[in-house]
Design a protein around this nucleic acid. Sequence first.
DNA 1: AAACGGATGGGCT
DNA 2: GCCCATCCGTTTG
Length: 207
Amino acid sequence: MTPAGGRKNRPLPISFYARSTVEVARDLLGTVLVHDSPQGRAAGRIVETEAYLRDDPACHASRGPTSRNRPMFGPPGHAYLYLIYGMYHCFNVVTAPRGTGEAVLIRALEPVEGMALMARRRGTDKPKALCSGPGKLVIALGMGMSLNGADLRRGPLAILPSASYPFPAGEDPSLGNIKVTTRIGITQAAHLPLRFYLEGNPFISKK
DNA sequence: AAACGGATGGGCT
DNA sequence: GCCCATCCGTTTG
């Protein structure tokens, strides 16, 4: 048994994020996103990600810093949230050395804690509908623009190593294969293989 | 099962 | 003024 306060329950260190964005996107699979709000804790295992790179036209940071994408040029391991289609938000993790302008979009979670709270926020009871999309998971976890730029090592929002939550029997994601495809919902640079998910996981957004 | 359109507002050419 | 890193209910095959 790891003693209480041991490494496995501690948020991922900045050094985890300050690496190549593709590497981080792959390694985030299986880790756990936790949000502690006044309403309680909600958490989910990351099962689907996308990488957005600095010289990639689909990336918000590809044409230099603006007021919207500013967090992408800040320190790695912080949050970047933005409004999409006027009604939803997407949550990204800033990656690579500070100033690079890259991030990983979190596209789907497998719910692991606070499912009743998630169900209330999402207006549905079906586990597979709670967090199976970038807009859905932001709602299920009760996240908002006040978390834009937040430090994922300290705040109410954190990412923990996969071992910090017990796996359902026979579902250790570290044993699953990682599938790579093109990204979803974009028009620019649509052919690049920058989407990653745990093969066979029932909680991803799309096949 | 897949395709389609409406909601809705900020960002950028 | 057009373009979205979306979601959901409705229609169509």
